[in-house]
Simulated scan of single mutants.
Amino acid sequence: MAGRNVVYESVPKDEKREELQKPPERPKGLGIRHLQTVILFICLTIAYTIRSQLSVLMVAMVRVQDPHCAFPDGTRNISEGCVDPNANISRWNIYRTYDWHKSTQEMITFSFFVGYTSMMIPMGLLAQKYGGKLPIMFALAVNGVISICTPWIALLGGWIAMSVSRLALGMTQAAMYPSIHTLLAKWAPLRERGRLSTYIYTGSQAGTIIAFQLSGLFAGSPILGWPVSFWLFGSLSLLSCALLGWLGVASPHQHPSITTEELAYIMEDGAVDIVPKKRKTPWKHILTSKPVWGLIVSHAGSAASYLLILTEIPLYMNHILHVDLKRLWLVQEYFCSRSAL
């Protein structure tokens, strides 16, 4: 009896039977969370096209300098009898080339990443306070307007205005990843978070590939020219901003047509707080964590290599390998016509 009493006394008096509760089943078919994933993928893809296009278009915007016709600072020496390619066109014609030295080109390209790195943490705080939707819309709107105006910015303000515009692009695009993280924390269930995150973040590679191909096509086209690339991707940025404002929602609870089953599936395991809680950031533990510093070092090396290839390969192909953009466009057109036959 004593042993039996011990056994019965060890049983909890207040049994909640949590182990018997089944988690919500995944709703069949595509849901609102998948729609948000597609929208964020489109927004990130367009953002990366605007980020990457200048690396290719810089080759078309800058004329090949003759060492005998240029001063050490990169300006043209007309007294030597050198011909200015822009002499026979109107001063308001945006279809022109510029005498930008290599160091000037790198200053313009580098300006984007100065703004990007300086605003990453502030944009993360804004996304945490106001949600992820509004910062992304603001970034896409600013990027679209600046991209469309870039040919006139270069014409009227020169390389300094171009550097300032690229700085503004970087400062606003710093909102993309923190805002996407914020939206994923609200929309992605724990069991699908890795998969949905992968779908969205693939937009960075897709945007880079699209920008390199289309920018090279426009820059080498004798009809369209390099300004068309800025206009196209700028217009797409404004359209994606409107798409996010129309169909994007900051939280599942704010969506008017989400089903009860999908909402319960997203909310399972405490993945999302119904009422956002203010939490303290454990800075001491973060800054003293060896895995955190290992991730920082590895990501810094990966990012440095990626950005070096992103910004320098078009110039390397043009100046070192002597790959002409116009000739490359004609080769692509030839193979496309042959494949159609």
Rank of each mutant, 00 (worst) to 15 (best):
Q205W: 12
A168W: 15
I136D: 11
A206T: 06
T172W: 14
Q213W: 10
L125I: 07
Y116N: 12
I153A: 02
I148H: 09
V164A: 02
L125N: 03
W187A: 07
K186S: 09
S179I: 15
S118F: 15
L134P: 10
A174R: 14
G124A: 05
A139L: 08
I200G: 07
P151N: 06
L169R: 04
T208G: 05
V164H: 03
L126C: 06
S165P: 02
L125G: 02
M162W: 06
I146P: 02
R191P: 00
G207H: 12
P189L: 11
M123L: 14
R191T: 03
R166D: 07
G132M: 06
R166S: 02
M120L: 09
L196E: 03
Y177N: 07
P151Y: 08
M123G: 08
M123N: 05
S165D: 09
T198P: 00
I148T: 04
T117W: 12
S118R: 08
R191H: 11
P151Q: 05
Q213M: 05
I146M: 08
P151L: 04
W159L: 01
T208E: 05
A175M: 08
I153R: 01
G203A: 14
F113Y: 14
I146D: 11
S111D: 14
V164K: 04
H181R: 10
M119S: 10
A139Y: 12
A175Y: 08
S204R: 13
L190C: 05
G216W: 07
V145G: 05
F218V: 01
L169F: 14
Y201D: 15
S204Q: 13
I148S: 10
P135L: 06
S147I: 11
Q173C: 13
L125A: 03
G158Y: 07
T198Q: 13
I148Q: 08
L217Q: 07
P135T: 13
T182I: 08
H181L: 07
A168M: 13
R193Y: 02
G124W: 12
T208F: 15
Q173T: 11
L156G: 03
S197G: 07
Q205R: 12
R191M: 05
M123P: 04
W159S: 01
I180F: 07
L184K: 00
K129M: 10
P178W: 12
K133G: 05
T117M: 08
Y130N: 07
Q128R: 10
T172V: 09
G157D: 00
V164T: 05
T150P: 00
Y130P: 01
G157R: 01
Y199A: 03
A188P: 01
